[in-house]
Amino acid sequence: MAKQSVQKAPFDTQNAVVSNKGILSVVGTPIGNLSDASPRVIQTLAGADVVLCEDTRVTAKLMSRFDIHVPLERCDDNVIASRTQSVLERLSAGQHIAFVSDAGMPSVSDPGQYLVDAALNAQCKVEVIPGPSAVICALVASGFAMDHFFFEGFLARKASEQLKRLVALAAVPGALVLYESPHRVEATLKNIAEVFPQRQVALVRELTKVHEEVVRAMAPQLAQSIAQRENLRGECVIVIAPPSEQECAQVQADLMMAGNSTTLQEAIEQGLLEGQSKSMLAKTLSKQFDIPRSEAYDRIVQYNQNLQ
């Protein structure tokens, strides 16, 4: 799993002359266990004129495993934009081009999206050959409810930026799925524990491999447990359980408070200046700011005391 950082080069698909003779096959490949390659994946790769891939050395192992002899060409983050025009020209000439990432489904936190977008804009035929996905596998392995989920991919490396993003993700009413490297997972789990201390978190590691592991606990306990381990290996997927109904309600209340142009203190001051009684003002503030009436009343009393 590698974070996509494609610098998109301008490409004029409107002036590209492309027929539907060729086809671009976007192929999902195993995320660890090569035996997970489906017959259709093998058939598609074997029938292609060329296979575009992130790392020819990685894809060569898959091709060798199934005795497939098709030319491989590098098409990773750094070159995919610059090679798109030649790919479209080859599709126009009737070639069958397969595209794979090192593991999993292309375009999902991996290269591919830019090429697929350009091919569709140029009216090329595109097909998806499904394969394993670390996102879905990790969700299932976590055991958390997944009626709704949000895939974040890799967080920023800087701790302050991570925390800011995690706070924003707290408003998502579903499970959260993150990718992380084994070298940074300890620090990331520590930040997750700070933002989500009341949620369960699962660390899913080495998916589909011999040493596949799922460690699940409350966020602070999981962070502490992983911090005590040494030489953690394998690509990691972190799954944060969905928020409870109580947490969802609190997040919504916080968002309403943040989006209200008038602060609670300003509303108290205005109400008292208008001569409203404390009880009536507390009732009004309770509805306006979605807080208990008793809390609103206490804030009014506190405001009065501060004036004395």
Score class of each variant (00 low, 15 high):
281 L>Q: 10
62 L>Y: 12
130 P>D: 00
71 P>Y: 09
155 L>N: 00
301 V>C: 11
225 S>V: 11
150 F>N: 13
158 K>R: 15
191 N>I: 05
102 D>Q: 12
78 N>R: 13
118 A>N: 09
177 V>S: 14
284 T>M: 03
215 V>W: 02
214 V>D: 06
128 V>F: 08
305 Q>L: 13
225 S>N: 12
238 I>C: 01
15 N>E: 09
53 C>E: 05
295 E>V: 10
279 S>Q: 14
302 Q>V: 01
174 G>M: 10
180 E>P: 00
79 V>A: 05
127 E>H: 07
79 V>E: 09
216 R>S: 13
140 V>M: 13
238 I>Y: 00
280 M>N: 14
296 A>T: 13
164 K>G: 02
51 V>H: 09
270 Q>I: 04
15 N>Y: 06
62 L>H: 14
256 M>H: 07
4 Q>K: 14
259 G>F: 10
235 E>Y: 06
89 E>N: 14
139 L>R: 04
120 L>K: 12
239 V>H: 11
143 G>Q: 07
293 R>H: 07
20 N>H: 11
23 I>K: 07
153 G>P: 05
282 A>S: 08
52 L>C: 03
19 S>C: 05
155 L>S: 03
128 V>C: 10
34 L>Q: 12
203 L>W: 06
190 K>L: 03
127 E>W: 02
60 A>M: 13
96 H>C: 06
187 A>V: 10
136 I>S: 12
91 L>N: 03
250 Q>F: 03
189 L>A: 01
298 D>F: 05
105 M>P: 05
76 D>W: 04
